[in-house]
Simulated scan of single mutants.
Amino acid sequence: MRCWHHEGVRPLRPLYAGLTWRRWTFLLLGGLLCAPTAVVVAFVGGTANALLRPEALAIGVTFGVSLLLMAGLGLLPVVRKLEGAVAAELLGAPQVIGTCARWPARLRAAVWFVGHLFCGALACGATIFAPPAIGYGLIRPLLAKDAMIWPSLLGLVVIPAFLYGIVLAGHLAARVAEWALGPSAQERVEAAERRASVQVERTRLARELHDSVGHALSIVTVQSAAAERILDRDPDFARQALKAIEESARTALEDLDHVLGLLREEESARAPQRTLRDLDDLLAKTGLDIRVDRDGDLDRLPSAVSREAYRIIQEGLTNVAKHAGHVPVDLRLSARPGVLDLELRNPMGARTHGRDTGGRGLAGLSERVGVLAGRISAGALDGHWRLAASIPLPKGTA
Rank of each mutant, 00 (worst) to 15 (best):
L260K: 07
T47Q: 13
A321T: 09
Y16I: 05
D330R: 11
G359F: 09
G60F: 04
R233S: 13
R239T: 13
Y16T: 08
G261F: 09
D299W: 02
L27H: 14
T352R: 08
E7W: 06
R108H: 09
G72E: 04
E83C: 05
F162M: 12
P131A: 14
R274M: 09
P151D: 12
G214A: 07
Q186I: 04
T275N: 11
A225Q: 11
K145L: 03
G125W: 12
A388T: 11
P54C: 07
A56P: 00
C119I: 14
P36L: 05
D293M: 03
L32Y: 11
A109F: 08
K285R: 13
S377L: 02
V176K: 02
L82E: 02
Q186R: 02
I166V: 14
C34N: 12
P132G: 10
L205T: 10
V327I: 09
H116G: 09
V198R: 14
S268V: 15
I391L: 12
Q186S: 04
F43C: 03
R175I: 10
T127N: 10
F129T: 11
G261D: 11
I290R: 02
P94V: 01
G364E: 13
R250W: 07
K145Y: 07
R194V: 03
R368S: 13
D257H: 09
R106P: 04
A388H: 11
V65Q: 01
G359R: 10
I290C: 05
R194C: 00
D295M: 05
H384F: 08
T99R: 15
P131Q: 12
A398H: 11
N346I: 13
L282Y: 12
W21K: 08
L253H: 14
F26T: 03
E315Y: 01
M348D: 04
L282D: 01
S224R: 06
A350T: 10
V111A: 14
N49Q: 11
A309I: 03
L90N: 04
H215G: 04
D330I: 04
A309N: 01
R229A: 14
A226H: 08
C100Y: 00
Q240A: 07
V157F: 15
A225P: 03
V39H: 06
Q95N: 01
R291E: 08
I149E: 10
G349H: 01
A238Y: 11
K395P: 00
T20H: 03
E266R: 15
E246C: 12
G84V: 03
G261K: 12
G396L: 06
T62I: 05
F26Q: 05
D236N: 08
R250F: 13
A147C: 06
F237S: 09
A380W: 00
V198M: 08
G31F: 06
G296W: 02
L231Q: 06
D356Y: 08
F63G: 06
T47L: 14
